[in-house]
Design a binder for these strands. Structure first.
Lengths: 192, 192
DNA sequence: CCAATTCTGAAACATTTGTTTCAGAATAAC
DNA sequence: GTTATTCTGAAACAAATGTTTCAGAATTGG
């Protein structure tokens, strides 16, 4: 028996996420955030909590979206190796066309050392990325598209981390060719 | 005919660098910085300038140190391939034993998108890293330790970026074995 | 020693920060 | 329609931010 929350929380989190993504945790002010979310700070503190809590929710939301993407890809009817190669190509597209790098990577470098909760969310995200890659690599080996010479666990870890550096490269050099060549090299290394 | 600057500027920059390195640009406050530098803010503004200028000087200093390290390594009497392998191993050591990741990488993700001057310093640093690697790879090819099958430019780019992801991996998982295995894999890929 | 100049320390500055307050608007249950 | 509860908007909060001010200390060259 009372008034209802007026704003759509999911939409508001999405908007806040975009601000944090672009400006980072310390770079985003409460005003920046509430402006984008189109709510008053009292509403924010009443429902979601303080700045840290909001950030946690945003990073969680970001990693949820990635999780959904991986699940969707794994549910595809294509061959594992085709899914993997598609994923790499689309990942390259995200790097080249996106304008704000990866929020998980940025957050890892900015706050994961000091904020345990964020760190845990990012670890979970990283573990899911690893599982996604591991399964595809393992299955591709069984189907003969990837040499069984290497440990699939190592390859999964390796790509999971390689991939991060491509973001840095693109921030500095803005050179799509460079990213594409590195991706091709990686795929070639895998398949031979 | 006037008073001299009391503090040692180089020492002060070094101290400020450590604060920025640990806390990031936005996370470090002017008080944090002047406390570490042991100078008054008026002295800072009189000699070096504002916070941005100080940061520029710190990032510059950081990249200068790296430059010196590369030059020293290139001046060594060892074979190129040995220099390269040593460098990779020591780089792994820095990741595993350091507690604050790489300042150049952190800065790239936090501010390079918005701050053109920082971006330029980091690009120059990246180019030097590239040259260092490129020369070693090229010479190792000529001496037969690295297969000439691949383009040395690609390999240099590739390692330069791969390397960044190892930092992220270590922030999240704090697993030295993981980093070491990836390094070994990279060296193996190179040499075959 | 004097004069000119420059540096330092402490305090103050205006903004911006994250957060709280509270009167009034809105709604659900009765 | 009343009542109880909860949400919203605007304003206010103290603390922290980056920066400036300025009196006095220090140093140099004459």
């Amino acid at each position: 028996m009372a008034r209802n929350v007026e704003f759509n929380e999911e939409v508001a989190i999405q908007k806040a996420m975009e601000v944090f993504w672009k400006k980072g945790y310390n770079g985003a002010s409460l005003r920046d955030l509430t402006d984008a979310m189109q709510i008053n700070s009292s509403s924010l503190y009443n429902t979601i909590g303080d700045k840290q809590e909001l950030f946690v929710r945003c990073v969680q939301h970001y990693t949820d979206l990635r999780k959904q993407d991986w699940e969707k890809r794994l549910g595809s009817k294509k061959a594992p190796f085709a899914i993997l190669v598609d994923y790499i190509h689309e990942a390259v597209g995200v790097i080249i066309n996106g304008e704000d790098s990866c929020m998980a990577v940025k957050s890892a470098f900015e706050v994961a050392t000091n904020d345990q909760r964020i760190k845990e969310i990012l670890i979970a995200d990283n573990d899911r990325a690893y599982q996604f890659l591991y399964n595809l690599i393992k299955n591709s080996m069984e189907q003969g598209q990837i040499s069984t010479e290497e440990d699939p666990a190592l390859l999964a870890d390796y790509f999971n981390s390689t991939w991060t550096g491509w973001y840095e490269s693109y921030i500095l050099h803005k050179d799509p060719i460079k990213i594409k060549r590195m991706a091709e090299y990686f795929i070639k290394q895998l398949s031979k």
